[in-house]
């Protein structure tokens, strides 16, 4: 595992999910307030792209909703908050350094 620079902070607008390919892996990213979250761009239910999803909030936690069948994930923990997915989402550690976004892959 090592930190890889994935994109620039300027590419984000709040709550807008973007998708990048790194080492043949599809990684989705979203900036919510001052934090950037990175996760697999694949719903654990039926593998549809999560970069088509929506961002919401519940009790202070950022929630990602898959736009295909409505599964919801807690973006801090990756835990499933609403079915039909049962497996948690892989969340990657991120750092912001001088306007650049780095992800641990």
């Amino acid at each position: 595992m090592k930190m890889i620079k994935i994109c620039n902070l300027s590419e984000f607008s709040d709550n807008n999910i973007i998708s990048k390919i790194v080492n043949s892996k599809n990684i989705a990213l979203v900036k919510i307030k001052e934090q950037v979250f990175a996760f697999d761009d694949e719903c654990t239910h039926e593998k549809y792209p999560l970069s088509h999803g929506m961002i919401d909030e519940n009790n202070g936690n950022p929630i990602l909703e898959c736009s295909y069948h409505g599964t919801k994930f807690n973006l801090k923990s990756g835990k499933v908050v609403a079915l039909p997915a049962t497996k948690p989402l892989k969340i990657y550690k991120t750092e912001i350094k001088q306007g650049e976004v780095w992800v641990e892959l």
Binding site: E65, C66, H69, G70, K72, L83, P84
Partner: peptide
Amino acid sequence: FSTVVPPRDN
């Protein structure tokens, strides 16, 4: 509520 059958399910 709506965590077992979310609106987008079908």
